[in-house]
Design a binder for these strands. Sequence first.
DNA 1: AATGAACACAACCGCCATATC
DNA 2: TGATATGGCGGTTGTGTTCAT
Length: 306
Amino acid sequence: MGRQPCCDKNGVKKGPWSSEEDKKLINFILNNGQCCWRSLPKLAGLLRCGKSCRLRWTNYLRPDVKRGLLSEYEEKMVIDLHAQLGNRWSKIASHLSGRTDNEIKNHWNTHIKKKLKKMGIDPITHKPITSDQPTYDQPPSQKDFNRQENENTGTCPKNIKTTTTATTTTVAMPSSETNLDRQENKNVGTCPRHIKTTTTTTVVTTQSETNLDRQKIPLIPPTEILIPYESTTSSTSSFSSQSSNMILEDLKFLPNFDNWQSDFNMEINWTNDDFSSTLDYLLNDDDISDMNNTTISQDWSQVLEV
DNA sequence: AATGAACACAACCGCCATATC
DNA sequence: TGATATGGCGGTTGTGTTCAT
């Protein structure tokens, strides 16, 4: 007997998450902690696969997830760790506080690999590439052959072509200088993607660090995230009787999520108990009033001003 | 201004390991 | 002890954005 699918595929929504779905997921986990992912979508009122919820939470919504480009130091660590561990992204990620395996994997595939190649280093073996040695990103798999076939028959997805663009000549970048990035990319003809001023509805950039892209903050405005539950819920809904503009006021006293760990002396891998106690701390009126004296982080201030 | 190419990254898929019954 | 459920991992794809023409 084969394995059951992780969820009922019928009626399950796929694709990008809406802010509404994010809110539901965040609210559910804030109120209930992380429990079994399989039943979470139903309980949270989401038409999503449990697996999808888990990924969304761990890779994007979790408050201790660091966002933005990897620093030079982090990048160096990734390269070193990759040399030791290979493509074991989760292991690599465990050495980089706040970074997810998915993020590191993406960064490796889109940035670091190119840099290493440009530097004449094989990203697989981490050894210098000899001129007579062909290099492959991956050993050609059956899928690659299928892709090639698809391309030939004109049915390939549009991004197949990106798999063959190993001709880029990007060099190691001074990561904090966007104008240099721009100049450099201009010179070598590669797209300066990271220069973009984000205009999507999910991300906002600030300039609190030298690198414009370092501080991408999930733009689910706090007013959107912490939707007050209907007044029937328990003590956790201290916001329930408040109007939305009052909630905005309250949100000013929430901690800077960037400092979530240090603020609450939390481990990176928190347990449900950790989460619950932290949640209590966050939502306890006394504690909130104690936090009146704390400085609102620049990042959140900016978000709140939006 | 329109269009296609190039790109980044969020999200999905399928497999594997472990837990539970 | 085997079957099943669940979570985690790595590879891959899809989509939206930006840039060049």
